[in-house]
Amino acid sequence: MMDAIQIEQVSKAFADTQAVSDVSLTIQAGELFGLIGPDGAGKTTLFKILVTLLRPDQGKAVVNGLDVVRDFRKLRPLIGYMPGRFSLYPDLSVEENLSFFATVFGTTIAANYELIRDIYGQLEPFKNRRAGALSGGMKQKLALCCALIHKPDVLFLDEPTTGVDAVSRKEFWEMLHRLNERGLTILVSTPYMDEAGQCDRIALMQTGRILAVDTPGGVENLFQKPLFAVKARDTYRLIQDLRAAPFTETCYAFGEYLHLTTRPSVTAGTIHGYLTGKQHEFVDIKPIKAGIEDSFMALMQDHG
């Protein structure tokens, strides 16, 4: 299969901040690929390099067979980019925004309507509303339409779901899957670890570096330590007591349960005995398989 994106040892610094350090990554045509990492990981800088808005200090990146520096003019019509910050014209209406982006790329809304029908259909009742007056979820859908209207081969979405509620996020990912099924290559970044499972493959990023690249399942399997989910009535005291326990390596809140990693050959029985000794009530302990977030946290610690 052809590579849609090839990144070779790309680095970029701003003043004394190394935003991207020696990143290499290959994304195949037709993949839905996720860049997962917190603010400051370098995701946006990497995106800007790939969409020809920034030149790398070092290294080379090729998108759709075109070099992002040398061939930027040829490349731009072939890619769609939805920046993390709201990128539309707030004073233009929904329809005017879309029509503007279509015109800039020398096409019309009608010519590529098929591709956005699904998404734009939900916006059409509000097509005369100013974009600035839309709700967060609607703005995000309009921005996606504007990034798609020239029918790009590769779609770059920089944190499209940040600050968006859990319901709208789920809908957004359903849209991405439908676009991806039509053959569109999609590179999407997110700080939400729970969205990693939606991607074919993911790269975990932290402070400019890539910690791991694999399928979501593969990333979960990188986690090697014994892992337990623990719950008791008094969560706050439970965290403190578990962190002080001789068998504990790390202990973090994970929703209803705490996730506890321990030294090797520690059993649920050992933990239970310790907690009973500390007068904890309604103790529930079960060995579990690590999720993406567990792996990310372990990798962060390994990388100091």
Binding site: G37, P38, D39, A41, T162, G163, P191, M193, Q206, Y252, A253, E293, F296, M297, M300, Q301
Partner: peptide
């Protein structure tokens, strides 16, 4: 906690 890494969030 928007946007911070999972350890900092905790």
């Amino acid at each position: 906690t928007g946007g911070v890494d999972p350890i900092t969030r905790r």
